[in-house]
Design a protein around this nucleic acid. Structure first.
Length: 292
DNA sequence: AAAACCAGCAACCGCTGTCGT
DNA sequence: TACGACAGCGGTTGCTGGTTT
């Protein structure tokens, strides 16, 4: 880290928070194949380091943040490409029902990163996009509110009653309805793992306004989540019947999309064999991070 | 054939948490 | 303890390609 950081020219005048990049000279918009090539070459050679220094060192006129995003969401070799499978979708829906709408100040807040962590090769951005474009509509079509995961008709009825407290007690019933309707969600698990109700929106105002109580609820759920995640199978293990979803055993397998890329070839990156890089790169990444 | 509309996705923006000094 | 740098996260935007009129 220090090795890279000393390359940056800070001065006393720089005191105060700097913008993450020089807005005037930074390029925005879609990445070109050449930029991708530079970034990949740099990261494979040097490993991930201080992102702010990456564009400078890699010869890119990009914001460090932009480089990180491009790498993590698109260029990372261990990414899966293509649409989410049915199994993956189900996991996303299930986790969303438990993690979604977690809010500290009444703001919508979905833990996409936590969901993504359970889907190897998928990024939070990808899952978020897939949710907004596909799953949301799917659920609405099925008559399920994508935010609360309650059946829409039931929600409308409870809204008519306009009693927030009454919503809290409809959760387990709703889960059963979901199972009866489509069989997608395992409602028994849902109800067991969410004894307190998952969504703040389902809780009475009096409870939501009680910080200490909400904290304890959250802590309970956190431990529950640990147990839950341990019980969730890795999607790959289940998807063997799907030809598009064969388990990818190695970096090389996961990089198939790179080999197929029409924009640039493997040799453009300056290396010939991904498998050689797989171990060395990962080692480098780890060592570089430690060494910084 | 052209314009309007729509859906999907990549990328950006702003905020927050963490770490180092 | 305060402050700045940085990485990471989630919501939003805007571009692009496809479809409909």
């Amino acid at each position: 880290m220090l090795g890279v950081r000393h390359l940056l020219t800070y001065s006393v005048d720089d005191m105060g928070r700097q913008p993450c990049c020089d807005k005037l000279e930074v390029k925005k918009g879609p990445w070109t194949a050449d930029e991708d090539k530079k970034l990949i070459n740099f990261l494979l050679t040097n490993g991930q380091c201080c992102w702010r220094a990456v564009p400078k060192l890699a010869g890119l006129r990009r914001c460090g943040k932009s480089c990180r995003l491009r790498w993590t969401n698109y260029l990372r070799p261990d990414l899966k490409r293509g649409l989410l499978t049915e199994t993956e979708e189900q996991i996303v829906i299930d986790l969303h029902s438990r993690l979604g709408n977690r809010s500290t100040h009444g703001l919508l807040c979905v833990r996409w990163s936590m969901i993504a962590a359970k889907l190897p090769g998928r990024t939070d951005n990808e899952i978020k996009n897939h949710w907004n474009t596909h799953i949301k509509k799917k659920l609405l079509k099925m008559g399920i509110d994508p935010i609360t995961h309650e059946p829409l008709n039931k929600q409308a009825a409870s809204q008519e009653n306009s009693s927030p407290a009454s919503q809290h007690f409809t959760q387990s019933d709703n889960n059963h309805q979901v199972e009866e309707t489509d069989g997608v969600l395992n409602s028994e698990e849902n109800s067991v793992s969410s004894p307190t109700g998952d969504n703040e929106s389902l809780l009475p105002d009096s409870i939501c306004s009680d910080d200490s109580l909400m904290n304890s609820l959250w802590l309970d759920q956190t431990s529950l989540m640990d147990a839950l995640w341990a019980s969730i199978p890795e999607p790959d293990a289940e998807n063997n019947n799907n030809e598009n979803d064969m388990p990818l055993s190695s970096w090389e397998d996961n990089s198939a999309w790179l080999l197929d890329s029409k924009d640039f070839g493997v040799h453009d990156f300056g290396f010939n064999c991904f498998s050689e890089i797989e171990s060395s790169t990962l080692q480098t990444l780890g060592m570089e991070e430690k060494g910084q």
